[in-house]
């Protein structure tokens, strides 16, 4: 079976920098899985994410979606961004409108849907993310957890196949996180693929069905959580053994 999303020997360097942020990355993300993406700060996780829906373009190498290499013309990008939703770390920086309903409606309108369909999508996403009672509230009156769910709803209203979440939960308390995982559970049941950047062993053990470990711009490991936890060499090399298992 072809993987849903794959990177083939991708190199990418930020303008004006020596080091490659993606240094020959080759990795595949299978469809329908809960994928945990692990890696230290600077390992290339965010750069990888920004490649997924064509926001960045590889210097060399190829990103493929559904077996086909990404095309970077306007029309292809539009289709791609419908299929691959990315939600970023700081919700405050993604919400541009002071009206929650209006913010969620932005993505669906960009897909060229009719107003009636957009209303339906907004309602659907709001129900999925449990923000229905916030629709008429101003964005700046929401709590951090509520903002994160609204940002998520704004992406899910486009009904993507893959949801990529770049440390969306970094600033949330465990209860706020729990509610995000509730949303992920519903998405998983609908057959969606979720890629989540995380450092949490618990998430890897209890939520993930597939794990990718990034180190130095490459994939150091890709496989099931059990295989990762049994692979002492990788755990030692990537420093994960130290943070997950060493006593304080």
């Amino acid at each position: 079976m072809t993987p849903l999303l794959e990177f083939a020997d991708v190199y990418y360097r930020y303008p004006g920098q020596e080091r490659y942020a993606l240094d020959g990355l080759t990795v595949a993300f299978p469809g329908g899985e809960n994928i945990a993406l692990i890696g230290r700060n600077g390992a290339g996780k965010s750069t990888l994410f920004l490649h997924c829906n064509g926001l960045y373009r590889p210097d060399t190498g190829e990103v493929r979606f559904g077996g086909r290499p990404l095309a970077y013309d306007r029309k292809s990008l539009k289709v791609l961004r419908q299929h691959i939703g990315v939600v970023f770390q700081n919700a405050d920086e993604q919400l541009f409108s002071a009206s929650v309903a209006q913010d969620i409606s932005f993505g669906p309108f960009n897909l060229g849907l009719t107003e009636q369909e957009v209303r339906r999508r907004v309602q659907m996403a709001a129900e999925l993310c449990e923000v229905v009672e916030m629709l008429e509230r101003p964005t700046h009156a929401l709590s951090g957890g509520e903002k994160a769910r609204v940002a998520l709803a704004g992406v899910l209203a486009m009904d993507p196949d893959i949801l990529i979440s770049d440390e969306l939960m970094a600033n949330l308390d465990p209860w706020g996180r729990r509610r995000i995982f509730d949303i992920f559970k519903r998405l998983h049941r609908r057959g969606k693929t979720i890629v989540l950047a995380t450092h949490d062993l618990n998430v890897v053990r209890r939520w993930a069905t597939y794990v990718v470990v990034m180190a130095g711009g490459r994939a150091a490991f890709a496989g099931s959580p059990d295989d990762l936890l049994a692979n002492q060499a990788v755990l030692d090399e990537t420093g994960l053994a130290e943070v997950w298992f060493d006593e304080f």
């Binding site: 961004r81 939703g85 970023f88 993604q94 009206s99 409606s105 932005f106 960009n110 107003e115």
Partner: peptide, 25 residues
Amino acid sequence: QRSRRLQTALDARGYEGGHLQVLPT
């Protein structure tokens, strides 16, 4: 920096420049 990250986030939601269309209340 915020404005640049906002731009990235808007692009990720399929923004192609031009008018920010949203639902009328």
